[in-house]
Amino acid sequence: MRVGGWRGGVGRALVLAVPYAWLVLFFLVPLLIVGKISLSEMRAGVPPYEPILDFADGALVGVRATLENFALLFEDDLYVGAYFQSVGIALVSTLLCLLIGYPMALGIARARPDRRGPLLLLIILPFWTSFLIRVYAWMGILKDEGLLNGALLWAGVISEPLVILNTDAAVYIGIVYSYLPFMVLPLYATLEKLDPSLLEAAADLGARPWRAFLSVTLPLSLPGVVAGSMLVFVPAVGEYVIPDLLGGGDTQMLGKALWDVFAFSRDWPTAAALAVSMLAALALPIAVFNRLQARLEPEEK
């Protein structure tokens, strides 16, 4: 028995050690390095930052940490603007996704059971095709001599082409388009579990469909609303490809600012400070999300 227990112990340790070590080395440590570099000074050279800890003869002789990078972020209107614009664009896009996605999820949940599968498949399918190429397709639709303007001009709705590409409007369209499936899927999951007899009871008691929706369906689907909103909001805040391809010069979002600072200015400490402040911006919504999920989940049953 002792031998068996010993072997189980080694197996258990191995099963635990491999993924743990991977996550620490390739996820936790990199994040700590970002935190460290966000506190160091920039310099010209490879790598382009000063070490924080000064070693001489193997002994620590000084610590040079600075909050200058963060101070710079708060002083520079560009970054402050990017911060608020990112959160604002992500919020509005999340609401738009909710407005379009909720009726879709409800429609699928109330479709005939044999049709729900294919309808859901059609929601998931775009996700498996290239995200980049789907965003790119919008460039052809939205540009000045693009399809949308062509159609509107032809129909006589407008006489001058609308400028949509390279504006915030195009960024909203791109984000809503790309993240809509992430909103519909969790919403569908909660709506599908909803007991139809509750709605029948509401109708028997004289509630009109709209009233029944507001007092039965909507409250019971809140976990899905919260989950879907987070799945849209969090990645939208850090979005880089969509503002880069569809946004204009005045669309500054954090993800794009981070890449520009990193790649073009080669200012790694500022890029790291941007990453840390982006995480800080997301920590609150993620914590709220976890709280709500934990509180709402028992009610689902």
């Binding site: 080395l25 390739f26 970002v34 790598p47 969090v234 990645p235 850090g238 981070l258 990453a275 995480l279």
Partner: peptide, 22 residues
Amino acid sequence: LVTAPLVMPEVILGLALLLLFV
């Protein structure tokens, strides 16, 4: 650690891993 990458913005993950490799 297992679930965090799901909600981590890609730019942060990319930057962090690059800094690790350097």
